[in-house]
Deep mutational scan, measured.
Amino acid sequence: EMEYEEITLERGNSGLGFSIAGGTDNPHIGDDPSIFITKIIPGGAAAQDGRLRVNDSILFVNEVDVREVTHSAAVEALKEAGSIVRLYVMRRKP
């Protein structure tokens, strides 16, 4: 069973403070093209906020749908998102 969360982060000097993997051209798990959080960087915006978790998958960055995009398109969406970034994420319920 999945749960969904909308997380708004303010981009810090060091960016959003997380790493991603995945994409249609580089699936992270099997042939699932989802964009997954692979690392939360200590002291970064995501770590300070505390809600984003490793293995969360990002569905939307602001209004941009990143469910079926290449890795570089997801990176671009995050880069272009401005200083306030709304992430709509999905994760397995614990």
Rank of each mutant, 00 (worst) to 15 (best):
residue 1 E to T: 01
residue 1 E to P: 01
residue 4 Y to A: 02
residue 4 Y to K: 10
residue 6 E to D: 15
residue 8 T to S: 03
residue 9 L to H: 01
residue 9 L to W: 07
residue 10 E to H: 08
residue 11 R to M: 04
residue 12 G to W: 10
residue 13 N to T: 07
residue 15 G to K: 15
residue 15 G to T: 15
residue 17 G to N: 07
residue 18 F to Q: 00
residue 18 F to R: 00
residue 19 S to G: 05
residue 20 I to G: 00
residue 22 G to E: 08
residue 24 T to W: 11
residue 26 N to M: 08
residue 26 N to I: 13
residue 27 P to K: 06
residue 28 H to Y: 04
residue 29 I to C: 11
residue 29 I to L: 12
residue 30 G to V: 09
residue 32 D to E: 05
residue 32 D to A: 06
residue 33 P to C: 12
residue 33 P to S: 05
residue 34 S to W: 15
residue 34 S to P: 06
residue 34 S to T: 08
residue 35 I to R: 00
residue 35 I to D: 00
residue 36 F to H: 10
residue 37 I to A: 10
residue 38 T to E: 10
residue 39 K to C: 06
residue 40 I to D: 01
residue 41 I to G: 06
residue 43 G to F: 12
residue 43 G to C: 13
residue 44 G to E: 07
residue 44 G to N: 03
residue 45 A to G: 11
residue 45 A to W: 11
residue 46 A to Y: 01
residue 48 Q to N: 12
residue 48 Q to L: 05
residue 49 D to F: 03
residue 51 R to E: 12
residue 52 L to A: 07
residue 52 L to F: 03
residue 53 R to F: 02
residue 53 R to P: 00
residue 54 V to F: 15
residue 55 N to F: 13
residue 55 N to D: 09
residue 57 S to M: 12
residue 57 S to Y: 12
residue 57 S to C: 13
residue 60 F to E: 11
residue 61 V to R: 00
residue 61 V to H: 00
residue 61 V to S: 03
residue 61 V to D: 00
residue 64 V to F: 07
residue 64 V to P: 00
residue 64 V to N: 05
residue 69 V to A: 15
residue 69 V to N: 08
residue 71 H to P: 04
residue 76 E to Q: 05
residue 76 E to D: 03
residue 77 A to G: 12
residue 77 A to C: 04
residue 79 K to H: 02
residue 79 K to C: 01
residue 80 E to Y: 07
residue 80 E to I: 07
residue 82 G to C: 08
residue 83 S to D: 13
residue 83 S to R: 08
residue 84 I to G: 13
residue 84 I to N: 15
residue 85 V to K: 03
residue 85 V to D: 01
residue 86 R to S: 11
residue 86 R to K: 13
residue 86 R to A: 08
residue 87 L to Q: 00
residue 88 Y to S: 11
residue 89 V to R: 14
residue 89 V to W: 01
residue 90 M to E: 14
residue 91 R to E: 04
residue 91 R to H: 15
residue 92 R to S: 14
residue 92 R to P: 08
residue 92 R to D: 08
residue 93 K to E: 06
